[in-house]
């Protein structure tokens, strides 16, 4: 199953994904997918290095499924992290 590296950015805490160009991006769609252990190891190593470099916090690999080009994490917790609260965030309440 495909994996992607997720973390929170240190400066604003937002959920970010590791991208192919070595940057951290806010959209899961722009994150780099790994389909094998070697790539996954590389991603994690890069994430831990960026954590030591005080860019991000708690990098971890999560499993994702691809559905019509949309990336959905397997674990509900990570779905919520990637796509926001499941409840309508209603600013008029």
């Amino acid at each position: 199953m495909a994996k992607i590296l997720i973390a929170n950015r240190l400066s604003d805490g937002l959920v970010v994904f590791y991208a192919a160009d070595g940057s951290w991006v806010e959209s899961i769609t722009d994150g780099q997918l790994s389909y094998d252990d070697a790539t996954a190891d590389h991603l994690l190593a890069a994430g831990l290095a960026d954590e030591r470099d005080n860019q991000i916090i708690d990098p971890c690999l999560i499993e994702v499924t691809e559905n019509d080009g949309k990336l959905i994490p397997v674990d509900l917790r990570e779905v919520i992290r990637a796509h926001g609260p499941t409840i309508a965030v209603d600013r008029t309440i």
Binding site: N8, V15, D58, R77, R81, P85
Partner: peptide, 13 residues
């Protein structure tokens, strides 16, 4: 940061 009320939650601080 916790003693200043700042948590890291799922989406942000």
């Amino acid at each position: 940061r916790l003693m200043n009320g700042l948590y890291l939650q799922l989406h942000a601080y």
